[in-house]
């Protein structure tokens, strides 16, 4: 059997909000080490990779590896009923046909039980090569979301360029052009809510990406105050948000290339 209890149920809510518009159905792969999920969007341009380590749950039991296939839109609707301080318990039988989600309020005064039908999803897992990225930008997640939103007014593609001085996001379209430059900056009083912008630069990078997908990724903004964007020329970029201190959600996006 599989059973896992997450004291901060709102993490699961934020994860579902982050992926439900990008991926329809996905397998939650459960093993003794935790839960992982890997899924591509329907056009095979982007990929989401979620990791929740077993030690981040206050109870975790997985007798044998199972893949629990779920419709993420249906799951997100159920998980939206989680109160912010609720604990969430996920349970499944050994074949993953039926999945139970139980939400408990902090004082134990309210318990709700939901059952979702497991789906048989035939998904191939992609091998993601481990890469030393040329440029790694860490910045406030809300700022990244805002830049994606603001540049979408101008065009559908953003050129992200890193240099020693900073990072620029530029877009152009029929209306004109827009460019937003961020310089490296220190965090304000080490305050996690006011993170600065930092760039680890092995080599400068300049690469084009579809704003539509980056905007999908920014639905993960409520998960964390910072986001990390890792890039090398000629390969997909990775946008990573931590999931509490138990794992991460990573979004990969293939670049736009010259015609």
């Amino acid at each position: 059997m599989f059973e896992a209890r997450l004291p901060q149920g709102d993490l699961l809510k934020k994860i579902l909000e982050a992926v439900k518009d990008l991926v329809t159905d996905a397998n939650f792969d459960c093993s003794s080490t935790g839960i992982s999920l890997q899924a591509m969007d329907s056009s095979h341009v982007s990929l989401v990779s979620l990791l929740m380590r077993a030690d981040g749950f206050d109870h975790f039991r997985c007798d044998r590896n199972i893949s629990i296939g779920l419709n993420l839109l249906a799951m997100s609707k159920v998980v939206r009923c989680v109160g912010n301080n609720d604990a969430v318990t996920m349970k499944a039988d050994d074949n993953g046909d039926l999945v139970t989600l139980m939400f408990e309020s902090q004082d134990g005064s309210k318990v709700s039980d939901w059952q979702l039908r497991g789906l048989d999803i035939d998904s191939e897992r992609l091998g993601i090569p481990s890469t030393d990225y040329s440029s790694v930008v860490t910045m406030p997640s809300a700022e990244f979301a805002r830049i994606c939103r603001d540049l979408s007014v101008i065009g559908d593609t953003v050129v992200i360029t890193t240099t020693k001085e900073g990072v620029t996001f530029a877009s152009k379209g029929e209306l004109g052009t827009g460019k937003i430059a961020l310089r490296q900056s220190a965090a304000i009083d080490d305050d996690a809510d006011s993170p600065g912008v930092s760039i680890e630069l092995q080599e400068p990078v300049s690469q084009s990406f579809a704003l539509r997908y980056l905007s999908f990724f920014t639905k993960a903004t409520p998960l964390a105050p910072t986001v990390t964007i890792s890039m090398s020329n000629g390969v997909p970029l990775v946008v990573e948000y931590p999931v509490g201190d138990m794992g991460h959600i990573r979004f990969y996006l293939a670049p736009k290339v010259e015609d």
């Binding site: 191939e124 992609l126 152009k172 990969y252 996006l253 293939a254 736009k256 010259e258």
Partner: peptide
């Protein structure tokens, strides 16, 4: 503004 590459051309099936 460029042609969208497919992710599968970078990441092979494992």
């Amino acid at each position: 503004s460029g042609k969208q590459a497919s992710l599968t051309s970078f990441f092979g099936a494992s």
